[in-house]
Design a protein around this nucleic acid. Sequence first.
DNA 1: TCAAAAGTGTTGGCTGTACACCCATGG
DNA 2: CCATGGGTGTACAGCCAACACTTTTGA
Lengths: 222, 222
Amino acid sequence: MSVQETPQAVAVSVEVVVFSIRDRRLKLLLERRGAEPQRGLWALPGTFLRPDEDLDGAAHRALAEGTGVTGVYLEQLYTFGRPDRDPRGRVVSVAYYALMPSDRLRLCAAADAEAVGWFALDELPPLAFDHGEIVAMAHGRLRAKLGYSTIAFQFLGETFTIPELQAVYEIVLGKPLDRRNFRKWVLSLGQIEETRELRREGRHRPARLYRLADPGDIVFFK
Amino acid sequence: MSVQETPQAVAVSVEVVVFSIRDRRLKLLLERRGAEPQRGLWALPGTFLRPDEDLDGAAHRALAEGTGVTGVYLEQLYTFGRPDRDPRGRVVSVAYYALMPSDRLRLCAAADAEAVGWFALDELPPLAFDHGEIVAMAHGRLRAKLGYSTIAFQFLGETFTIPELQAVYEIVLGKPLDRRNFRKWVLSLGQIEETRELRREGRHRPARLYRLADPGDIVFFK
DNA sequence: TCAAAAGTGTTGGCTGTACACCCATGG
DNA sequence: CCATGGGTGTACAGCCAACACTTTTGA
């Protein structure tokens, strides 16, 4: 790094694209801005970086403050730094994305947000700043990563059935999958183990519950 | 983004991991630091972000100032922001990586660098700051991306032979590949077209020269 | 006993891998 | 004419996609 250049002070923020599956749709957590600029527009939950915390920590904090949720899967996505992307001045935003199970949330609007809500990805309201661009990139990354890692499990609770997992894949990928092939594939990954319990869910045969062999681990394959 | 938080001023820099293949080895461009802190250690070429430029622009500039090279393939890698990663204060570094052909360079040490040099990836000197971590991540990304994109072509000039391209893959992946299968595979991608020229390179049959069908495009496959 | 979703195996095509021989050139 | 690397075709195996029937439950 060139030390002869004078460092220019810049505000650094983190923004988090929070995905969850609700009502069989891929949804996104947004906050309605309660302050200028762009008051009233919906925006990603985020926060400015504090002097003593690292980026991952700031992302976790933004999530906790915005939604009350902790311990979810969080991964850095990309950093956005166009000079004119925020009218308040020079703001570089490190974007993260998070996946959370649909049950695991306790929505509580942050102090500066008017409201918090879930929006289907294909019915988003107008977004503040360049957050539309951030969301598009996060969605692309999510779809790509389904194909070579086990992140999809992060959408589910501790135990889940194979048809539930299949629904996650179908919703994120936007296309139906063959039940038999899906089952063979997911079992061949060696990442899940069966429990003795079943899930009863209507007037039909109950499905066996599985759990992750190494909970919390994201495994890459292929 | 929480507007009630007070934005803390932070210095933002970009650092570039420049890969090239020289002497049949994967090499990395480093600058020897000519100023404190960490004077005398080798570091990635980088620069502080200027008020009017975007991140990609700063990365291109860091590269041009460090090496005199323009127009190479450059991609954002990851952003590093541990609070203690730079003893001068809070510095968030947006890391990029670049691939360049082995011919295309005119080394000129930046004003604040004592020297500039190429180092084999498996014989790196001690690096300044957390640059070792950045290099490790860049190397991982490069290997992964060989498998599903056409970035490897960025190591070669405008025209190249198939055995030359194969050497790039073998060097980056660190393992030999079958000539016949490699040729079939690369032709099946539909990204290269043959020229009428040949390359004479010793006392054996000359190899046909190819060129990219869409120069500059990075194509994803599979 | 019926509807509705869960669970199970087999087959054929395709892709990726292993492998052996001929070609063009310079010395 | 020989050494050196370039260029081509084939055969086998493993993987993935397509597909039909039986099981368990609640009403």
